[in-house]
Amino acid sequence: MACLLGGGDRVPGQRHRAPDVHMERGAPYGRGQQHRRRVNLNPLLQALDLQEDAARTLADELRTRIDALQNQLRDGELRLEHLAITRTTITGLADGIPDQAADLAGSLELPEHPDYPRILAVFNDTSGPLRARDICQALDFELLLKHVERTRNKMKRLVTLGILSEAEPGTFSKKQ
């Protein structure tokens, strides 16, 4: 069939030039006579050429995208490698930190309640000792006995954690 269409000697990648070959079809016409009709293959071959060009263009675009994605992948893998090196360096340095510094960091862990950081913020803003009533006023709590007692209990807990000190009963200051 390729010989009939003129495509048997085609070089791959080279554009096909449609030959001026027409196939003839025979059909009986009348008595003993045949009507011969010619089929022009040029439009079909031209359509194939257009489709091949479109497929080549698409393949080229996809190769370009793949190259760009491979470059991005290399950059991402390099970034991951650098981050792994950084993590190793930091953990290596952290292992060399003396235990005293770790104890100081551990003593600053506060209980879960949101009032504890607020209480410490009040102590950071003042320089002298404070009473529970003073903290309640600074935090805009109503000066009811239950609020003052809750605040005093929280301050005593901060004393047991080593964050505050109680110089006199009911008078608290930040530990130096």
Rank of each mutant, 00 (worst) to 15 (best):
Q70S: 05
T126N: 14
Q100S: 15
H147P: 02
P114R: 00
L44F: 12
H82D: 15
S173D: 11
G32H: 01
D9L: 13
D53W: 10
L58W: 05
E112C: 10
A167Y: 05
S165I: 08
V39Q: 11
L45A: 07
R63S: 10
D140H: 13
A101H: 14
D53E: 12
E52L: 12
M1K: 04
A84S: 11
R157D: 06
N153A: 12
F123A: 03
K146P: 01
L41Y: 12
A55S: 11
H16K: 07
P169T: 11
N153H: 14
S173P: 00
P98Y: 09
R152A: 09
G76E: 08
L45F: 12
L120T: 01
G13T: 07
Y29H: 15
I90E: 00
D9P: 04
S173K: 08
L48D: 06
Q70A: 05
R74T: 12
N153R: 15
Y116Q: 04
T160W: 01
N153D: 13
G92A: 03
D49L: 08
R79F: 13
R131V: 06
R56H: 14
D20G: 08
V159A: 02
S127D: 08
A94H: 02
H82N: 15
L120E: 01
A54M: 02
H22E: 09
L5A: 08
L93P: 05
T171H: 08
G162N: 03
M155E: 04
A68Y: 04
P43C: 13
R17D: 14
R65K: 08
L5W: 06
E61W: 00
G30M: 10
P169R: 14
A132M: 03
I163E: 00
L78S: 12
I119A: 02
I119Y: 00
L144Y: 06
E149M: 09
R56E: 15
D95G: 14
T126G: 10
P117W: 10
D95C: 05
N124I: 08
A94E: 09
H82C: 14
E149P: 00
E61T: 07
A47E: 11
N124F: 04
G26C: 06
Q46W: 08
A138W: 03
G96V: 03
R15N: 05
E149R: 07
E109N: 05
I97N: 05
R79N: 12
Y29K: 15
N71R: 15
F123V: 07
G30D: 11
L83R: 07
R87N: 12
M23C: 10
Q14E: 13
K156T: 03
I119F: 01
A167C: 11
P28E: 11
D20K: 11
A167E: 15
C3A: 15
I85N: 15
E166A: 06
F172K: 06
N71C: 11
N40R: 10
A167N: 10
L108Q: 06
R63D: 11
E166D: 04
D75I: 03
Y29V: 10
Q34P: 00
P129M: 09
E61F: 03
A132R: 03
P129V: 02
R17V: 15
N153L: 12
A121W: 05
L45C: 02
H22V: 05
P111C: 07
G96A: 12
R131N: 01
A2Q: 08
